[in-house]
Measured scan of single mutants.
Amino acid sequence: MMAYMNPGPHYSVNALALSGPSVDLMHQAVPYPSAPRKQRRERTTFTRSQLEELEALFAKTQYPDVYAREEVALKINLPESRVQVWFKNRRAKCRQQRQQQKQQQQPPGGQAKARPAKRKAGTSPRPSTDVCPDPLGISDSYSPPLPGPSGSPTTAVATVSIWSPASESPLPEAQRAGLVASGPSLTSAPYAMTYAPASAFCSSPSAYGSPSSYFSGLDPYLSPMVPQLGGPALSPLSGPSVGPSLAQSPTSLSGQSYGAYSPVDSLEFKDPTGTWKFTYNPMDPLDYKDQSAWKFQIL
């Protein structure tokens, strides 16, 4: 009977010793046993002879290597770790002494450095960015050149030099007046198309007034536009458009034309069986010896 009264063996659950049927240790109110408190290391007290050895090595170098620390530790009968900690504390003490010396050398008012006064946003004049500046400075420094007289040679050079070769001289006033084509001369031969040399188009003023001019072949195509416009036809070669000034309004060009419109200028042929003959000019830059190549039959 006494065997049943004795408590059973101890069981360990999660490293906790349980005594038989008792489960009081598993209750929430019972805390787990805490780790033992780490003991504080005792402070090391250095003797005068030990301090002399350490100070002598510190005077040589503030960062001794492990071999120098072990050698000193053997002399003063201390572990190497204590020597390492002593050098660490000695360097910190040396830095603190240097900072105190710097503070003593500075004057009393030198510690508080005078800061520059901050400028207020409204006091300083700042350039306004509302208006974009002129990058080319046209509004201040540029002045347009004065327009020359209508009959000045410089204007003629600016007008005619675009179309004339570089080897030719500017046309005088008398020749510029001949550039304007007359109405009857352009409409006299509506079906004849003559190819003149390129030099005649640039230099010869008579080429624009003769039936064999460069633009005589364009007349049949330009004249039928007159009834559609409801007024006189516009002429690209009329009046002052080739003269001194090219800047004319469309209203000033509306009254200039080749001449009176005639039914002869239409595109319809009077004789459907007729042929169109292209007159060959020996001055043509295209060297075609066979003139029969310039004739064709309209079917």
Rank of each mutant, 00 (worst) to 15 (best):
N6R: 12
P7E: 00
G8Y: 14
G8L: 11
G8D: 00
P9H: 07
Y11W: 11
Y11T: 01
S12M: 13
V13E: 00
L16Y: 07
A17L: 15
V23S: 03
D24F: 14
D24C: 15
D24A: 15
M26D: 01
Q28V: 12
A35I: 08
P36M: 11
P36H: 09
K38Y: 13
Q39S: 04
R41H: 14
E42M: 05
E42D: 05
R43N: 14
T45S: 13
L51T: 11
L54N: 15
L54M: 08
L57D: 15
A59M: 09
K60R: 01
Y63P: 14
V66T: 09
Y67G: 03
E71I: 12
L74V: 10
I76H: 11
N77M: 10
R82T: 12
V83F: 15
V83A: 11
Q84R: 07
V85F: 14
F87Q: 12
F87V: 13
R91Y: 15
A92R: 14
Q96F: 08
R98C: 04
Q99G: 04
Q100C: 09
Q100P: 09
P108S: 09
G109S: 04
G110A: 04
A114S: 03
P116N: 03
A117N: 02
K118A: 04
A121N: 08
A121R: 10
G122K: 10
T123Y: 00
S124C: 06
R126W: 02
R126L: 07
P127G: 09
S128E: 06
S128F: 04
D130E: 02
C132V: 09
P133L: 03
P135G: 08
L136P: 06
S141H: 04
Y142W: 01
Y142N: 06
P145S: 08
P145I: 07
P145G: 03
P147W: 10
G148Y: 09
P149K: 10
S150Q: 03
S152C: 05
T155C: 10
T155H: 11
V157Q: 02
V157A: 00
A158N: 02
V160W: 04
A166S: 07
A166I: 11
S167V: 06
S169W: 12
L171M: 05
P172N: 05
A174G: 03
G178K: 12
L179M: 01
A189V: 11
A189T: 03
M193R: 09
A196I: 12
A196R: 09
P197G: 04
P197T: 12
A198Y: 09
A198Q: 01
G209L: 14
P211S: 03
P220C: 13
L222Q: 00
P224N: 06
G230P: 04
G230H: 12
S235D: 01
S235H: 11
L237A: 02
V242W: 13
G243P: 04
Q248S: 06
P250K: 14
L253C: 02
G255Q: 05
Q256F: 15
S257F: 13
P263E: 03
P263D: 04
V264R: 11
L267V: 07
F269P: 00
K270R: 10
G274A: 01
T275H: 10
T275C: 08
T279C: 05
D287E: 08
Y288A: 04
K289P: 05
D290V: 13
D290I: 15
K295Y: 11
K295D: 00
